[in-house]
């Protein structure tokens, strides 16, 4: 187990390093001088030189790279051009909103998707299965913002059950009201993905010999389904859920915009509109770290679910 952990951690570190390098390159392939872009055409020579110094653009490229890497790891991501606050403070302020939304949606997605996928697999090619397949295909065809606008239109405007702007104000009722629509939006789309992968993973497992053996020796059907089959179908499900978290993070940006909810999405859009380069760079660093962390957790979960993985 220790060797497995160390190997996974080492891989996570390499990934982090690689993506941070990519971020560094991306930010620097911007055509033109960032200082000029930020200050506009009217800026004086001195102002541009001063800003270049402040952004560290007057250093050599290797020196900039070193400063960037050390800073990224130490949490020193520079200062927002717009608010003057440290980037990390701004990010940490809204991060809980995005994490909360993502986790609640994921729980909804798993809670709805896994049982439906199992049920559809057991009743393969029956009515429920056909309906579930078409509906889930429709579900994963929805762009997140189109679904969000439909929900907003229906349940906040036509039927005024929920607030149009999802920012909570303390009480549990307010929290529930503010998270329901955004989480349902993302949860339904995740449920569609998870249902489909659960169904095909279960179908594969149900055709295995040991399932037939279990049936032959009279193991009760629910035990076969939930203990013998689902457990073995979990690996592909976890893989997809882990990969899906990336999509979910992207979709949460769109959902936050539609529901006017604070979070990383709103922050990155604000930074884009204001050309706040230090903020954009910081956002990429935080997304990278989240992605690497999610991958690490996914890998470790394999080890928990399937003891064989640890031995490889």
């Amino acid at each position: 187990m220790t060797a497995f952990l160390i190997r996974r951690l080492a891989f996570a570190c390499v990934t982090l390093f690689a993506v941070l390098t990519l971020v560094f390159v991306l930010v620097r392939i911007v055509p033109g001088d960032p200082a000029q872009l930020i200050l506009g055409d009217q800026a004086s020579r001195e102002a541009i030189v001063a800003l270049r110094h402040r952004l560290g653009l007057d250093l050599s490229i290797t020196e900039q790279y070193r400063v960037f890497l050390v800073g990224a790891l130490k949490g020193d991501w520079g200062v927002s051009m717009v608010t003057g606050q440290p980037v990390i403070a701004e990010v940490l302020r809204v991060l809980p909103w995005t994490i909360e939304l993502t986790l609640v949606s994921l729980v909804l997605g798993v809670a709805a998707g896994v049982p439906m996928g199992v049920y559809a697999a057991i009743h393969r090619n029956r009515f429920f299965d056909y309906v579930a397949r078409i509906v889930s295909l429709l579900g994963l065809s929805f762009p997140a913002f189109v679904a969000a606008i439909l929900l907003l239109l229906m349940f906040a405007i036509v039927l005024p059950w929920f607030p149009v702007i999802s920012a909570r104000s303390g009480s549990p009722t307010a929290w529930f009201q503010s998270i329901t629509l955004p989480a349902i939006n993302l949860g339904l789309i995740s449920a569609a993905y998870i249902m489909r992968v659960t169904r095909s993973a279960m179908l594969e497992v149900l055709s295995e010999d040991y399932v037939r053996t279990a049936r032959a020796k009279g193991v009760p059907w629910p035990v076969i389904i939930w203990r013998h089959s689902l457990r073995n179908a979990l690996i592909p499900i976890i893989t997809v859920v882990g990969l899906y978290l990336g999509i979910l993070i992207g979709n949460s940006v769109l959902t936050e915009i539609v529901f006017n909810r604070p979070g990383l999405g709103k922050l990155i859009i604000g930074a884009l509109n204001q050309r706040d380069y230090p903020m954009l760079q910081g956002m990429m660093v935080i997304y990278t770290m989240v992605v690497v962390l999610v991958n690490l957790i996914t890998d470790l979960t394999y080890g928990l679910v399937d003891p064989r993985v640890k031995l490889q």
Binding site: V30, G246, I249, I268
Partner: peptide, 24 residues
């Protein structure tokens, strides 16, 4: 393939958004 895995794990909308924002 490791590089491909990293690229695959990165939220494509975020990556697209950054590339477009940077290049115009």
């Amino acid at each position: 393939m490791q590089a491909m895995d990293v690229l695959l794990a990165f939220p494509s909308l975020i990556l697209g958004l950054i590339v477009v924002a940077m290049l115009g």
